[in-house]
Design a protein around this nucleic acid. Structure first.
Length: 278
DNA sequence: GGTACTACCTGGAGGC
DNA sequence: TGCCTCCAGGTAGTAC
């Protein structure tokens, strides 16, 4: 499932491959993939003849700045979405949802098994924040200067919920999902069930450092190999081999040898070491 | 306002 | 082999 490092990996690949390329047309194979505008024809007409200037990332959202007057193209990969840069005559994947056609027979193909992924065309008269409600509510990116220890302390001080649940809240920190929340909590030696109100400033500082470290490591590895993440060139990432706890329940902890556990928190699985994170 | 729960959705895994 | 159930999880909507 794409989280910040995977989305960042995709963004870098898209900037490498699609910058200054002109969208010549498209095809929407699954209408509900298009979140805005409500008309598929308007979506395709709005993009036609635009050029991709640059891809940006806000949390897990990808935002393509289009040539002047054309606005923006927004994409969220959600659980299983993939953006692939292919030749148009390559056979369609089973779960192909949207195709955007470019010159020289090239294509940007949106493939999404579980159909949760979304795309938006935002006219130049509007902004991504005004059209995509999720973007408007995003907290700071973990690499933003405003993501400080003091910011986290302030945001967590009155929250009576488990820290694992808080880390998944995109209004608090943008871009963290289930995998990296578990990994960051392990690295900072904090149990996922610890209430935010019970965390000391020293623990919060450790957690902040761990979040940045784990995300940076994964970006450098090209994203995770968990699930079916592929970058734009269709290549799997390399983070899976270095996971400390995620999806390793029942296996020994790499630090102390204890059997790793898994619990449910707010409907999501949390993986942890009962000894290191006590 | 803060928090928890549920729906959305598909395919793989496991049980029978 | 075939059928059924459970599980995975990001976000939006809803309930408390």
């Amino acid at each position: 499932m794409p989280e910040l490092p995977e989305v960042e990996t995709v963004r870098r690949g898209l900037n490498e491959l699609t910058q200054n390329q002109q969208i010549e047309g498209g095809d929407v194979l699954l209408a509900r993939t298009i979140a805005h505008p409500s008309s598929i024809n308007d979506f395709l007409a709005g993009l036609k003849a635009s050029k991709i200037i640059q891809w940006h990332r806000k949390g897990k959202y990808l935002l393509a700045q289009l040539s002047p007057g054309f606005g923006w193209l927004g994409v969220h990969l959600r659980m299983t979405g993939q953006l692939l840069w292919l030749q148009q005559d390559e056979p369609l994947q089973k779960h192909t949802r949207v195709r955007l056609f470019f010159a020289q027979n090239q294509e940007l193909r949106f493939v999404d098994q579980r159909t949760f992924g979304k795309m938006w065309w935002i006219p130049a008269s509007e902004t991504p924040e005004s059209v995509i409600s999720g973007v408007k509510k995003l907290g700071p990116d973990p690499f933003d200067p405003e993501f400080t220890v003091d910011y986290l302390v302030e945001k967590l001080k009155n929250r009576r919920r488990p820290i694992k649940t808080a880390l998944l809240d995109q209004e608090l920190i943008a871009g963290i999902g289930n995998i990296y929340a578990d990994e960051a909590l392990f690295l900072s030696k904090i149990s996922p069930t610890t209430l935010c109100t019970a965390l000391s400033k020293e623990q919060i500082s450790r957690l902040r450092e761990a979040i940045i470290q784990v995300l940076q490591t994964s970006i450098e590895a090209g994203g995770t190999t968990f699930s079916n993440f592929l970058n734009v060139k269709g290549i799997n990432g390399n983070y899976g081999g270095v996971a400390w706890v995620y999806n390793r329940n029942g296996e020994p902890c790499k630090i102390c040898g204890s059997v790793l556990g898994r619990i449910k928190l707010a409907g999501r699985s949390a993986h942890f070491c009962p000894e290191c994170q006590s």
